[in-house]
């Protein structure tokens, strides 16, 4: 009983405004100034304005919002997934509910087991995997590379997203091709574009870029490329060097 009270108190403390303020200030700065561009002077007086990015969302139960029909089965899915995973339920680091979608952030080690459970457990039955894609967040230390999977259950007409991460220094994520053969090309594409090595993939080779290509083009540290174009005396710089607004 006392531990329950303690936990409640901790949760209460976590929601206090000063704690939230600390979190806010710890988030990376996304934009400075009023207009989001640094190529011209800012005379607005808002030049010192700092806009910070958002901290990772961690949703708390209940995941189902009675006012949003899109979230109707989220609690059921979360319960069933927890039950099906059994001892390895701790692999789900956090759950994110936003825009009427549910995302399970899981540890990469648990991915093959999770995929098998998602496909085979009668309560879940996610028959279709809609592939995997990468996202590169260079400023999220230790979890720079994300692999995002989308699953669809035709039996229960339900859709979930599973996200796992790996550090840039150890770009390995287990392959789930053995469970979802459709992920064969999707994993090859994620390897090609992001350099994520899917361990256990039957033939992890480049798919879109030529075999002898260097680098992984969708990473943020890979330049877009392009040349300036001259037209009637004026020069238009390549897209990544034009004035931009953040």
């Amino acid at each position: 009983m006392s531990t329950d009270n303690e936990r409640e108190r901790d949760e209460e403390a976590a929601r206090l405004p000063d704690r939230m303020g600390e979190e806010r200030l710890a988030a990376p700065i996304k934009r400075t100034g009023m207009f989001g561009t640094g190529t011209s002077g800012d005379t607005s007086g808002f030049g010192l304005l700092q806009v910070r990015g958002s901290a990772p969302v961690s949703s708390q139960r209940p995941f189902t919002d009675p006012d949003d029909p899109r979230t109707a089965d989220f609690d059921r899915v979360a319960d069933d997934l927890e039950a099906a995973l059994g001892d390895s339920a701790g692999a789900v680091e956090r759950v994110e509910v936003s825009h009427g979608e549910i995302t399970f952030h899981v540890l990469r080690e648990a991915l093959p087991e999770l995929a098998r459970v998602l496909r085979d457990d009668p309560a879940l039955r996610y028959e279709l995997c809609l592939g995997v894609t990468g996202v590169h967040f260079p400023d999220r230390e230790g979890r720079e590379l994300h692999a995002v999977y989308q699953f669809r259950s035709i039996t229960h007409n339900s859709e979930i997203r599973v996200t796992t991460t790996c550090p840039d220094t150890d770009r390995h994520i287990p392959s789930i091709v053995a469970v979802y053969p459709t992920n064969d090309w999707h994993e090859r594409e994620a390897w090609d574009f992001f350099g994520i090595v899917f361990d256990g993939h039957p033939a992890l080779t480049r798919i879109q870029m030529p075999d002898d290509w260097h680098g992984h083009p969708q990473r943020k540290d890979y330049p877009l490329g392009g040349i300036p174009v001259e037209y009637r005396g004026a020069t238009v710089p390549p897209p990544d060097q034009r004035r931009s607004y953040t």
């Binding site: 934009r31 989001g36 806009v51 958002s54 894609t133 996202v135 969708q218 931009s244 953040t246």
Partner: peptide, 11 residues
């Protein structure tokens, strides 16, 4: 949060 997509992927 910007004026450009951070990442867009098409299945």
């Amino acid at each position: 949060g910007g004026t450009r997509p951070y990442r867009v992927h098409f299945r």
